[in-house]
């Protein structure tokens, strides 16, 4: 007797979930995100992560900032976005500051941003690995901290979000003169 091998179901492995208060909220968000081209999937959240309804959206966690922006633009409500890891995980909030004399560099997660203390001009960005990072590098370097486009507005990925954190800290240092 021969058995036909069952075709493997297409899997969705994005590492992140959007949690909702109710089912219509989840289905509405699915429509919005599919409409702008995100790869997502309606799933049941694991019991430990259930906060509202029994329906969640599986997302590629690396795309969290772009997804949040798309939902905000359509006033879609959701409870939160969470990684599908072991223990409860939170986005890194802490930053580190390195003084290079005429320049200051701020590290936020895997991203770094350095600016000129005298002019407030962004001297460099480094680190990261998502495809919006070289684009943001080109857009930010050479511009004043206060006039540069914000990674949270033109970036799409968690690397961009970390660069935004670094930029915010640099702005605080620059405006407060804490160098």
């Amino acid at each position: 007797m021969t058995f036909l091998r069952r075709k493997e179901k297409p899997s969705f492995e994005g590492g992140g979930l959007i949690l909702f208060a109710d089912v219509p909220g989840a289905m509405g968000a699915e429509k919005i995100l599919k409409g702008v081209g995100y790869g997502i999937k309606l799933v049941a959240p694991p019991p430990a992560l259930r906060k509202g309804c029994d329906l969640a959206l599986g997302i590629n966690l690396a795309e969290q900032p772009g997804i949040e922006r798309a939902l905000r633009q359509k006033n879609a409500e959701y409870l939160g976005i969470t990684p599908l890891g072991g223990e409860a995980q939170e986005l890194l909030e802490i930053v580190k500051v390195v003084d290079f004399g005429d320049w200051v560099m701020v590290r936020a997660g895997n991203m770094k941003l350095a600016f000129d203390k005298r002019s407030g001009i962004i001297a460099n960005t480094s680190g990261g690995g998502c495809p919006d990072i070289p684009y943001l590098h080109a857009e930010l370097v050479g511009k004043k901290l206060s006039e540069a486009p914000r990674p949270k507005d033109i970036g799409f990925t968690l690397c961009a979000l970390m660069l935004e954190r670094a930029l915010e800290e640099c702005l605080t240092i620059w405006q407060g003169g804490e160098t």
Binding site: P83, L84, Q89, L92, I94, G109, N110, L158, M162
Partner: peptide
């Protein structure tokens, strides 16, 4: 072992 992206690493490890 749990982090899916460096933005989500345990803050003690970042330190």
């Amino acid at each position: 072992p749990d982090a899916i992206h460096p933005a989500y690493i345990n803050k003690h490890l970042f330190d």
